[in-house]
């Protein structure tokens, strides 16, 4: 990829990298540092980028590793999805969502519900539903088998909706 196009693609991806980092770790300042590091690493590792490949999965792979480094520095691991979290929850099968619920969902509620998701599920949901990556691109970015992408993504979506529903019911009760 020509140098100027490579750099333009990096700049184009900046918002996506920042908001993903921001929602993964919560702290805007740390998210800024992490994205700065991601860009520096991408420039250094440019030779490993395959010509003709999609750039965003490659950048998100660097972001995922940089976030994992950040967690490690703070003495913890990237929060993996527990087996229980991947099992189907009978309560969710009867979960009923309607337009009224959607209308009650506030922006800050979404942010809180997202923050409560296990990190791997959160990342899958952000990449698919906010950044529009395909299952194949997510699998490439996170080094997961395609089946794992589907299960973590679907469970993450379900958990997110469940938490939003609970939250909106509490809001309705309080009001």
């Amino acid at each position: 990829m020509p140098d100027d196009i490579f750099k333009q693609e990096l700049l184009n991806a900046l918002d996506a990298l920042y908001r993903t980092a921001r929602y993964m770790i919560g702290d805007p300042q740390q998210a800024e540092d992490i994205v700065h590091d991601v860009v520096a690493k991408a420039l250094e590792a440019r030779h490993t980028f395959r010509r003709g490949a999609e750039m965003r999965p490659w950048l998100f792979a660097i972001l995922r590793n940089t976030v994992a480094d950040y967690y490690r520095r703070r003495g913890r691991q990237f929060e993996r999805v527990a087996i229980d979290d991947l099992e189907y929850d009978a309560n969710e099968a009867v979960l009923s969502l309607d337009d009224q619920v959607l209308a009650n969902v506030m922006d800050e509620t979404i942010e809180k519900a997202l923050a409560q998701l296990p990190e791997e599920m959160r990342l899958a949901v952000l990449l698919a539903d906010v950044e529009g990556l395909s299952y194949r691109e997510i699998a490439e970015a996170l080094s997961w088998p395609p089946g794992t992408v589907m299960s973590r993504l679907h469970r993450g979506r379900k958990k997110l909706r469940q938490r939003l529903l609970q939250s909106s019911q509490i809001q309705a009760y309080l009001s």
């Binding site: 805007p28 800024e32 922006d107 952000l126 906010v130």
Partner: peptide
């Protein structure tokens, strides 16, 4: 909602 967050 999430896309309202942009790089500073």
């Amino acid at each position: 909602t999430v896309r309202q967050t942009e790089a500073p």
